[in-house]
């Protein structure tokens, strides 16, 4: 795997994503998701909300990194908070 030029941060990143997908699969097996409507304008399943959360997390990071002097950890914190809010009330 040397040609893939892995680094510690990217390894953690992909492991987290993989763990999330595995966790969502387990959760789905234990208690299947019910499509519902929260504060988002569309009705969503659990997986939809995770996808929306991750996609918006990508944009939050790009905004912070590209156009503000703020730390990337702040972007990460905001993204995690946003993801939790989205999963619970979205």
């Amino acid at each position: 795997m040397e040609w893939m030029v892995w680094t510690v941060p990217t390894t953690i990143f992909f492991s987290t994503i993989a763990a999330m997908l595995a966790g969502m699969t387990m959760w789905e097996v234990v208690s299947p998701t019910v499509e519902r409507k929260g504060f988002l304008p569309i009705s969503t399943t659990r997986g939809d909300r995770l996808f929306i959360g991750l996609l918006s997390a990508g944009y939050i990071h790009l905004l912070v990194v590209g156009f503000t002097p703020l730390s990337i950890w702040l972007a990460l914190g905001a993204s995690v908070l946003w993801l939790l809010i989205l999963m619970r009330w979205g």
């Binding site: 893939m4 030029v5 892995w6 680094t7 990217t10 790009l62 590209g66 156009f67 990337i72």
Partner: peptide, 29 residues
């Protein structure tokens, strides 16, 4: 995944590479 790995580094060859973090993203944006 390899592209993601490349995006946070300055890779010269198989043995010479430096971690640059978010620098490339800021520069590109």
């Amino acid at each position: 995944m390899t592209v993601v790995n490349y995006s946070v580094q300055d890779v010269f060859d198989a043995n010479t590479r430096f971690f640059t973090g978010t620098e490339w993203f800021a520069q590109m944006l």
